[in-house]
Design a protein around this nucleic acid. Structure first.
Lengths: 97, 97
DNA sequence: AATTTTAGTTTGTTTTTCAAACTTGTTTGT
DNA sequence: ACAAACAAGTTTGAAAAACAAACTAAAATT
């Protein structure tokens, strides 16, 4: 296969989005504040990147309530999981891990 | 250790620079055209990113000649190798590879 | 001697990243 | 009950990064 940088999904590769995807790959779904805490991002920044991942079809944002407070649950979609697997493969190959 | 995105070196992480570092980690030094071919970057773009890696102290650009043609050889510095090792560790940990 | 090719740098535009400021609604203190 | 502080996000504007086109300079080719 011998992956090179062209094979690395740029949407996933961004630092913050990579953190989100990595976390979602083991904790799915995860809440917005949970992701914020795990990534250390500001809420504004996280919001922007989630929108980007959502536009790419990798995650889904479910807006509901926890009690009376609004709560967004972020789900990894099947397409997102596929893309994640592929990303891992490409990185493993490229970095020779 | 449990690495998160904060532990990932942003200079190295950029797509193109990552390709350069990965290549240099096994072929050191490498010529400018060789890197261009391997990464698929335009020469302008590659030049910019090499400058960035050089400023960070991760590579050294040796300007010499191959016969009469100018040839830039790009060397991974010891600091660059250290940073690379650390990057690999952080990624391995974060991606659970 | 004109044209093409090689090797790179500089410059300007587009894209991306990021955080401050704002919005909307909730809880807490007095 | 009313104001102040808090929580959960979104919008927006500024800074940084990525990228490719245009340029420079010298060598090889015709």
């Amino acid at each position: 296969m011998n992956a090179s940088i062209q094979d690395i999904n740029g949407i996933i590769h961004g630092r913050l989005r990579l953190g989100v995807m990595a976390y979602l790959s083991s904790v799915n779904p995860a809440s917005f504040p949970e992701l914020q805490q795990k990534t250390g991002a500001t809420n504004g920044n996280l919001s922007t990147h989630l929108t980007k991942l959502e536009t790419a079809g990798f995650i889904r944002q479910e807006k509901g309530y926890s009690g009376k407070r609004p709560q967004t649950l972020v789900h990894l979609t099947p397409a997102g999981r596929d893309a994640w697997i592929e990303y891992l493969g490409a990185m493993r190959d490229m970095l020779k891990l």
